[in-house]
């Protein structure tokens, strides 16, 4: 499903030249569950942005569902992000002025769906995350865990085949974090490909494979010891 070959990402800011990714080769099959780990600055987020079509690699090829997305234009990438990918962020990244339900409707709006259909689909997603009763609250009026649930509802609402989460538990206490991870686990068990960037070895244990990055290169790949899927 995902096929990355010799992916390189360079940042050039004037004289300073940073190689964030030094040539990544990675295959991810449908329904896979990956944890990407590694020290700060090792290129985890950069890799996730490329896999999420938010960014293009400097060189290398990236096939997503058989299509080479490394050469696509902005509009085509926006469409892929909208239809095939769901993002979950450490800082939740909900729109602060909108209600949780309106937040969940944003991807549907960009998909061009009508108000009634959006309303129904967003309500379904919120119900699934157990926060339908908070639908009309703003993000500032609910707890961190509820915010992350709303963010996951938003990531799922367009039924993407790939969910990318960058430190999804980083801003949550350990119990709430575990609840969020349980949700990701159950998503994966329904066939959604899940890739989680994390520092937390507890998160790593739930994945099928752990990719360890170091200085922009894959240092090691380990199959998770505790395979409970």
């Amino acid at each position: 499903m995902l096929k990355l070959e010799r992916i390189v990402k360079d940042y050039d800011a004037g004289d300073i030249h940073v190689r964030a990714l030094g040539g990544i080769d990675l295959h991810v099959t449908r329904g896979d569950y990956l944890a990407i780990m590694g020290p700060s600055g090792s290129g985890k987020s950069t890799l996730m942005h490329i896999m999420g079509c938010l960014d293009r690699p400097t060189s290398g090829s990236y096939l997503l569902n058989g299509r080479d997305v490394s050469r696509m234009n902005d509009a085509a990438l926006a469409r892929i992000r909208n239809r095939e990918i769901g993002f979950v962020f450490q800082q939740f990244n909900l729109l602060p002025r909108e209600t949780l339900q309106a937040n969940v409707e944003v991807p549907l709006m960009y998909a061009g769906l009508g108000a009634r259909q959006r309303h129904r689909m967003s309500a379904d997603a919120l119900r699934r995350m157990g926060i339908l009763d908070r639908a009309h609250h703003r993000p500032s009026e609910v707890s961190g865990g509820q915010r992350q649930r709303a963010a996951i509802a938003r990531a799922l609402v367009n039924s993407p085949s790939l969910v990318l989460a960058d430190e999804p538990t980083g801003n949550l206490d350990s119990r709430t974090g575990r609840e969020i991870l349980d949700i990701l686990d159950s998503l994966n068990s329904e066939g959604v490909t899940v890739i989680v960037v994390t520092h937390d070895s507890e998160v790593g244990r739930r994945a099928r494979r752990i990719i360890n990055l170091k200085d922009g290169l894959i240092d090691s790949v380990e199959a998770a010891a505790d395979e409970h899927h």
């Binding site: 509009a75 992000r81 993002f87 990244n93």
Partner: peptide, 12 residues
Amino acid sequence: GVRKSLGARNDD
């Protein structure tokens, strides 16, 4: 940035 990550095109 958030809107773009959710599929907003530049035109949107």
